[in-house]
Design a binder for these strands. Structure first.
Lengths: 140, 140
DNA sequence: CTACAACTTAAAGTTAACTTTAAGTCAAGC
DNA sequence: GCTTGACTTAAAGTTAACTTTAAGTTGTAG
């Protein structure tokens, strides 16, 4: 397949495909003249990459996980760790969502005077939520 | 207060405080010689900024919301919209977490052969989850 | 009086994940 | 034989939210 066909089928732009190749995430099967030729397998690989991204892996991590093998064997422990990380993120986001909803509905004259809003502010300020802001690993 | 005291009390570094001032997020009450002097109120403001960040607002959005007022009146509609966005993110992340957990436990010889894993891959590839990856607004 | 720590500024550097640009290659159709 | 469109490369640009650096200024302690 030509790069444009891979792009069309996968929804990943040609420039991104070249970028991914450069990073070792995918590889072309050869060249026809100067043009890359891809195996259809690259589509599956791209799905795995999308999956990894969606789960919060960085491209570097994904490259490490997928390796160079044709049939990537995914590290189950790593998956569980990521699942746990996601779980933590979900919990924090849920607290945030509830806080925001309350703040929106709250009748206190100013949010600054609403005890619940203040508690939320405290959460944010004391860094309970910081992991959510700056988390590299689940940096979606 | 001097900048270092604000930094210590708030946990926000001095360079970040200057950066925030430049961006119009906070302001110093004046100068003593060349040095900035801050009102203690800036600490509250910094908490609000942290809260906004934690909720997924960009600094620009936060500047817009907080404005220049002493007592910022927060737009309730905006809060609700953000809460809804967060809710969407939470749902997607929950799907991802469950998928990852299953993948980790799954006994199929290769994840590529596990139907549930494949469904997850499809989700990721078809962009259902893309909003989570590239969402600027909830870009935590 | 002088050294020093803590501040100041403006500008450049950082990171990830791409995108854009400029300049060039190549097969195919007219 | 020439134009066209799809490809190629290497390098630079983009974005957000900072951090770092270099060079200069101060109040204060010794």
């Amino acid at each position: 397949m030509e790069i444009s066909q891979v792009a069309k089928k996968s929804g990943v732009s040609a420039s991104t495909l070249r970028f991914y190749e450069e990073k070792g995430l995918i590889s072309s099967i050869g060249r026809q003249g100067i043009r890359r030729v891809f195996s259809p397998n690259v589509l599956e690989r791209l799905e795995l990459i999308a999956l990894g991204r969606a789960a919060g892996f960085s491209l570097e991590e994904i490259a490490g996980i997928l390796g160079n093998e044709a049939k990537p064997e995914i590290d189950r422990e790593l998956l569980l760790r990521k699942a746990n990380e996601l779980d933590g993120t979900i919990k924090k986001l849920t607290a945030m969502r509830d806080g925001l909803q309350h703040a929106a509905a709250c009748t206190a004259p100013s949010h600054l005077e609403c005890p619940r809003f203040r508690r939320l502010m405290n959460l944010a300020a004391t860094g309970v939520i910081n992991g959510v802001i700056n988390s590299k690993s689940t940096n979606l």
